[in-house]
């Protein structure tokens, strides 16, 4: 399964309205909930929060990849959040994060989870692509960019 299989307009939140890290996580999980992708909001939030508590997934160049494992999902789930003005996510370069990829997987599907995370890592290496995502006008444009259209 490729990450692209998970990319639909419903799981894209643009622009994000959060002002801080806890709100970002809640907003992304709520996006999954609103899209009908998850039932148990609290369990999914707890899974990603536990990982964030160890060390922030805010990387360099404005990208953050919050992720976690929980039995509250039966398949890999992805939410994408875009904050053009940036939000403090305790990133390693101390700069605000603008592009958020939230991934949640069931504990017994680590293979697809790892491959999806690796695809995001590869995407993150393309500054031009990330810039295009941050400057997207709406969810449709984000999906089109991901598909390379």
């Amino acid at each position: 399964m490729s990450l692209i299989d998970l990319v639909v307009e419903d799981i894209v939140k643009i622009p994000m309205t959060s002002n801080d890290k806890p709100d970002v996580l809640r907003e992304l999980v709520q996006t999954l909930k609103d899209a009908g992708q998850i039932d148990d909001f609290d369990a999914v939030l707890q899974a990603v929060q536990e990982r964030e508590d160890k060390l922030s997934t805010g990387l360099e160049n404005g990208i953050a990849v919050p992720h976690g494992k929980t039995a509250a999902v039966t398949r890999l789930k992805l939410a994408i959040g875009i904050a053009p003005n940036g939000i403090d996510f305790d990133a390693m370069d101390k700069n605000p994060s603008k592009l958020f990829f939230l991934l949640v997987a069931p504990p017994d599907q680590s293979g697809p989870h790892v491959e999806a995370l690796a695809e995001i890592a590869k995407l993150g290496q393309s500054r031009a692509f990330c810039k295009a995502l941050v400057n997207a006008d709406d969810a449709k444009e984000v999906v089109d960019l991901m598909k390379g259209e």
């Binding site: 490729s2 990450l3 692209i4």
Partner: peptide, 15 residues
Amino acid sequence: ELSRIRSRRDEFYDE
């Protein structure tokens, strides 16, 4: 079955 969506981005070229 492979992805039905064929992204032109190389990053989505699955294993």
